[in-house]
């Protein structure tokens, strides 16, 4: 009990003594343009305030950086007391009030081989639209107009044979008909994913503005067919790497 009290008192002293110094170091080094924001509330880099980090975690991360996320190592910039001061400051920050502060866990990084990384870049290639990632998400990264990809055991043959149920052909007065999928719609409206564009468009019409007929001329295999067998293989390699739990990084 005495030990605990002493420890507590020492921390208070450290915290209050270091807080001023730590606040200044944080303002100058961490809330620089694009990084952790005023009071650790996040801007481009994640929020650090109120995240429940331990002193050791903060000390290690600040010293070594997180180069894969663009955070530099500060070991050569902050001496021991400066590091302690800024760690104390962060530990004492209240959680941010900002609605935009993302306090979610940082994404896990799976170390990819060169081939797997090439597959990922193909999956999301913004120049070959629609890309797979235009419509589908993998581990919540990607488009939301089609089902997320959960199954790592796809083959090229399976991808080519995917049939999309519920497709419709949409007629709007005076315009060319277009292929679409229905989405849940607010009352009195018809919400559709227009597939006639390289980037699908979620369009909302008033009931009666559009006429729907079953079936559409947009086919999944037309998109899959734009990739070579080797390219499909490369994307499948990546999917297996990130969707099989054994590869997920701790």
């Amino acid at each position: 009990m005495i030990f605990l009290t002493l420890l507590f008192a020492a921390q208070i002293k450290t915290a209050s003594g270091a807080a001023i110094n730590g606040a200044r170091i944080f303002a100058e080094q961490c809330s620089v343009p694009y990084c952790h924001g005023a009071g650790g509330s996040a801007s481009r880099a994640p929020a650090v305030a109120g995240r429940g980090f331990t002193r050791e975690q903060l000390r290690a991360t600040i010293s070594k950086g997180r180069p894969q996320f663009g955070m530099p190592a500060f070991a050569s910039k902050l001496n021991r007391s400066a590091l302690d001061a800024v760690v104390s400051y962060i530990l004492n920050l209240p959680p941010p009030a900002s609605a935009s502060a993302d306090t979610s866990k940082a994404p896990e990084v799976v170390k990819l081989s060169k081939e797997e990384a090439a597959g990922r870049d193909l999956f999301f290639d913004s120049e070959r639209l629609p890309s797979c990632g235009t419509c589908h998400a993998v581990n919540s990264v990607g488009g939301s107009v089609a089902a997320p990809i959960l199954n790592p055991s796809f083959t090229a043959a399976v991808l080519n044979s995917v049939k999309i149920p519920g497709g419709v052909t949409v007629k709007v007065a005076g315009k060319a008909p277009f292929p679409a999928l229905r989405q849940p719609s607010p009352a009195g409206t018809v919400r559709l994913v227009d597939f006639s564009s390289p980037l699908p468009v979620v369009r909302t019409f008033r009931e009666g503005e559009v006429e729907l007929s079953p079936g559409m001329d947009w086919k999944h295999r037309d998109v899959v067919g734009r990739y070579s067998a080797a390219e499909l293989q490369s994307m499948l390699l990546w999917l297996r790497a990130v969707l099989s739990s054994s590869r997920a990084a701790p």
């Binding site: 999301f124 913004s126 990632g133 235009t134 998400a137 919540s140 990264v141 990607g142 488009g143 939301s144 107009v145 227009d194 564009s197 980037l199 699908p200 468009v201 979620v202 369009r203 909302t204």
Partner: peptide
């Protein structure tokens, strides 16, 4: 102010 159309220009979590 009713939404007429909405395009995901590129998945934000990727880019």
């Amino acid at each position: 102010g009713r939404e007429l159309w909405n395009v995901d220009v590129e998945p934000a979590k990727y880019c």
